[in-house]
């Protein structure tokens, strides 16, 4: 039978995943020094690793090209595709916040509120649940600029420490969601290769640092 294939989000989650894999006893020599290769293998476990951008991890898993994936909850919330989200890996922690310029009262106004964000779906769903109609502008980066320059009243963004907000004269006024890395599984793979996949999940769970 083929090896299991895992799509791994490049960058920060990649390093944290390597830490976890090494605790699990996986040989991560290739993942630590991938060079320019994007297709890697774990020599001492029936596992191949694919390095990809966060949103693409979800695409590969949804299409069944990869059986498993490690990706941030932020990406999952924004994309809403069809797969199993089986484990909170506990690392890569941050949160979605609503932030405004310091001192501004976001809610105390009858005028239409405008929010700039890299995550329009997350923002739309959150405010729909609140029963509030807001306008959303999608930006690709440096979202903190938007309220300062007057493009929007507030932003929804991922925050780890809040320092970037502070340095740009913004403050978080509300937490939307807590974010961390998740292990996701293709729905068909889960059924066709139950034993191998549940074994892998169990190992991740046993060594995962949920209490970090």
């Amino acid at each position: 039978m083929n090896k299991l294939k895992l799509a791994l989000t490049k960058g920060r989650l990649q390093d944290k995943s390597v830490e976890l894999f090494e605790k699990m006893g996986l040989d991560c020599s290739q993942i630590k020094n991938p060079g320019r290769r994007l297709l890697l293998t774990v020599p001492n476990y029936d596992l191949d690793i694919v390095l990809a951008k966060a949103t693409d991890v979800i695409t590969y898993v949804e299409h069944g090209i990869c059986d498993l994936g490690i990706v941030g909850k932020d990406t999952i919330l924004e994309s809403k595709q069809n797969f199993y989200e089986v484990l909170d890996l506990g690392f890569g922690k941050c949160r979605f916040v609503l932030a405004t310029q310091t001192g501004e009262n976001f809610y105390e106004n009858y005028q239409n509120r405008c929010i700039a964000t890299k995550y329009p779906e997350v923002t739309k769903e959150y405010f729909t649940k609140k029963g509030m109609d807001v306008s959303i502008i999608k930006l690709e980066g440096s979202v903190e600029l938007a309220p300062v320059l007057g493009l929007s009243n507030a932003i929804v963004d991922l925050v780890e420490t809040g320092n970037t907000l502070k340095e740009n004269g913004l403050e978080a006024i509300e937490d939307l969601y807590q974010i961390s890395a998740r292990l996701i599984v293709n729905t068909a793979s889960m059924k066709m290769r139950k034993k191998e996949i549940l074994d892998f999940i169990k190992k991740c769970d046993a060594f995962g640092g949920k209490n970090d």
Binding site: E62, H63, G64, N82, T187, A188, S189
Partner: peptide, 9 residues
Amino acid sequence: GYIESAGSI
């Protein structure tokens, strides 16, 4: 129904 090698139902 699931088929080996099909990524979805």
